[in-house]
Amino acid sequence: MTAQHNDRQIDYIEFNVKDIARSRKFYGAAFDWTFKDYGPDYCEFADGRLTGGFTTFGAPRPGGPLVILYADDLEATQKRVEKAGGAIVKPIFDFPGGRRFHFTDPDGYELAVWSAR
């Protein structure tokens, strides 16, 4: 066996959602993610670097680990999130590594977006 390039790195993120079409619409509009359907209960997403999935096999579980995305233009990204229907729960603030904001998606998951100073 050979070592995998992604050894000990985040490989996949999965969200239980109520409505896959709604999640596709939100993340496509806010972040330009692309999607691949695997039947009516599962959809894989890709952000260009990481893949994950939306599934209706379980109830949404807001909370848990905080998923953090990166943006070159934090203000423009916050506007896109709001336009797509996300709710800002922590407006842009400074932290030692840069600046970020937190939002919830239509199923109540809290995510964050950060940017270097």
Rank of each mutant, 00 (worst) to 15 (best):
85 G>F: 08
63 G>K: 09
17 V>T: 01
33 W>N: 01
16 N>K: 02
61 R>I: 03
43 C>A: 07
73 D>T: 01
72 D>P: 08
110 E>I: 02
41 D>L: 07
108 G>K: 03
87 A>R: 13
36 K>I: 06
14 E>A: 03
19 D>Y: 01
72 D>S: 13
57 F>V: 10
72 D>L: 06
100 R>H: 11
86 G>T: 10
66 L>C: 04
70 Y>R: 10
96 P>I: 09
105 D>G: 09
30 A>T: 05
51 T>G: 04
77 T>D: 08
73 D>L: 00
76 A>N: 11
56 T>V: 08
35 F>M: 08
76 A>L: 02
9 Q>M: 15
102 H>T: 10
84 A>M: 13
92 I>F: 06
78 Q>P: 00
39 G>A: 12
113 V>P: 05
70 Y>E: 15
91 P>E: 15
3 A>S: 10
79 K>Y: 05
18 K>Q: 15
74 L>V: 00
39 G>K: 07
16 N>L: 00
11 D>C: 09
85 G>T: 08
76 A>C: 03
111 L>G: 07
19 D>G: 03
31 F>E: 04
102 H>I: 02
14 E>V: 01
50 L>P: 01
46 A>E: 15
91 P>F: 09
101 F>H: 04
90 K>M: 15
11 D>F: 04
60 P>Q: 04
3 A>K: 08
10 I>H: 06
68 I>K: 03
44 E>S: 01
42 Y>H: 08
7 D>I: 09
9 Q>W: 11
15 F>M: 04
19 D>Q: 04
40 P>H: 13
14 E>C: 01
102 H>G: 07
103 F>E: 05
70 Y>A: 11
55 T>Q: 12
21 A>V: 14
63 G>S: 10
83 K>Q: 15
117 R>N: 15
94 D>P: 03
14 E>W: 02
15 F>A: 01
110 E>T: 12
7 D>L: 13
58 G>R: 02
113 V>M: 11
54 F>C: 02
51 T>Q: 07
72 D>E: 15
47 D>Q: 06
45 F>M: 06
2 T>C: 04
95 F>C: 08
48 G>V: 14
95 F>L: 10
54 F>I: 02
44 E>F: 01
67 V>D: 14
8 R>T: 12
63 G>N: 12
72 D>H: 11
14 E>P: 08
59 A>W: 14
12 Y>T: 02
62 P>M: 02
75 E>S: 03
116 A>K: 13
52 G>I: 00
21 A>R: 12
96 P>G: 09
68 I>T: 14
45 F>V: 05
64 G>N: 11
61 R>Y: 07
9 Q>T: 12
17 V>P: 10
82 E>Y: 09
35 F>D: 11
60 P>D: 11
50 L>N: 07
94 D>C: 08
101 F>K: 06
71 A>S: 11
68 I>M: 13
111 L>P: 08
11 D>R: 08
103 F>H: 02
103 F>D: 06
65 P>R: 05
29 A>L: 09
21 A>Q: 14
47 D>P: 05
5 H>C: 03
67 V>C: 12
16 N>I: 00
44 E>D: 12
55 T>A: 08
98 G>R: 11
29 A>V: 04
85 G>E: 13
72 D>M: 09
6 N>K: 07
56 T>N: 11
24 R>T: 08
22 R>C: 14
53 G>I: 00
63 G>L: 10
2 T>M: 12
17 V>K: 00
32 D>K: 11
38 Y>P: 00
59 A>H: 14
103 F>Q: 02
106 P>I: 02
